[in-house]
Design a protein around this nucleic acid. Structure first.
Lengths: 235, 235
DNA sequence: ATTTATTAATGGTAATACCAATTTTGAAAA
DNA sequence: TTTTCAAAATTGGTATTACCATTAATAAAT
């Protein structure tokens, strides 16, 4: 039976939510702009504040608006991080940079070891290129952050593990857009860059020599170095 | 000034949210399972239903639970079609079980070592419970896959690394779902299950004894065992 | 035993009051 | 006048209570 389609009983909060979402997506409500106070909005829409808060709450967890007690609710600034899964996870769980480094430690050390087994000529040449590129950048007075990333991605590709590659792509995409500021401190010091370059070379050497354990350790020391840097800096 | 650290004024709804999320992540609340009615949950937590609804509302928009008016609130089934935070679903199709195990090797071994440093009583008891649960399941003639996952998530939680927890949750939700059939072969053999149980116990013992290296190795052997099983089976 | 009406259970909305953080206001002090 | 600072007004967060809407469970009628 049931030839009749059910009248889609959309919840009231759904409708409010849709309206607000539209306003934000269309740009009628611009980033940084303040929303109406909940009480006013409830009044002008003839619904309860409860419902309004429900709708806005969804926008908050979606990261489209932010609540500020005592101030109001504001449209969130368009944030490249928002599209990045890692960034979302980081902010949602308010993870620290150490959390990040620990996860990297797990992923990249094993990756380095695998790379030592599986890297082919193309992989090696990609690593080499990343290193010389980084040297050039530094010589030119720039920070070699992109070349740095390239090196690590080259290692990832050398594992031939599609899943690992995908994960690392997400990771470094975030490192770029997400914590660029934090990393600047690391790159500011020319001494650090030289050390990083040496560490990269050590990793590559181990990979070229088909020495998985060495590669593992070299990567470990590399990440440990970064971790120590931030630890020192905290004081 | 500001020598005083800000008392992290976490909202009540935040705390409720965290508790519920943890129950779901750990697998204590299994997919499809019904949550307590809001009213009794509010009562047993000594907060208002308003706050409970706020917390649950977040879980809903995150897709972890679903509301059904008149019926209740239920833990959502992990849905591959759903947007997963790390966009790994597509990769999971092409990824081999070895790819998965390699990435796990990196993440979980380091995690085990960290857990040995940081696990508290609650973590230990969660691991114990997962192990006994798995034993009970096996005794009853069922496969203890869920308890197995719970154990690994317990280790993840013991790291206190929020990012790692998030990553592992997604791994188990989306990736292992794709190779569930394959895993059946592993669990079919009672002998294997016993070995897996022993390995879990070894991991936990190392963690209890605060022996990071041992924990690392125990986890390594555990994953290596699974890998070897599938390798043998290919022939 | 089947069907139907009633009741209970449970999420959704409303209304009101008060708490907590922030801004604004306005009077007192300089 | 300008600055300071305390009181009041704003605004999001939580609590309470009541009632609506949907579904499941139960009792009553056939």
């Amino acid at each position: 039976m049931n030839l009749l389609k059910p009248i889609q009983q959309q919840k009231i909060s759904d409708q409010v939510f849709e309206q607000l979402k539209e306003l934000i997506f269309r740009g009628t409500l611009k980033p940084g702009e303040k929303l109406m106070p909940e009480r006013v909005m409830a009044d002008s829409m003839n619904v309860s504040r409860t419902t309004i808060r429900n709708a806005i709450g969804r926008l908050v967890t979606m990261g489209l608006v932010v609540h500020k007690q005592g101030k109001g609710t504001f449209v969130a600034m368009p944030d490249p991080k928002r599209d990045n899964p890692f960034a979302l996870a980081m902010t949602a769980q308010n993870a620290s940079i150490y959390d990040l480094l620990e996860v990297r430690m797990g992923l990249e050390c094993v990756a380095a070891a695998l790379a030592a087994d599986r890297a082919d000529d193309a992989d090696i040449s990609a690593m080499t290129q990343s290193i010389t590129e980084m040297e050039k950048e530094v010589q030119a007075g720039r920070l070699g952050t992109e070349a740095d990333t390239s090196f690590h991605m080259a290692v990832a590709y050398a594992t031939k593990n599609q899943l690992h590659i995908q994960v690392m792509k997400n990771f470094y995409d975030y490192l770029f857009h997400g914590i660029r500021e934090s990393l600047h401190f690391l790159y500011e010091d020319a001494q650090n860059i030289q050390l990083i370059l040496d560490q990269h070379k050590a990793i590559m050497t181990a990979i070229v020599n088909r020495a998985p354990e060495k590669a593992y350790e070299a990567m470990q020391q590399h990440i440990e170095f970064v971790k120590e840097f931030f630890k020192q800096r905290e004081k």
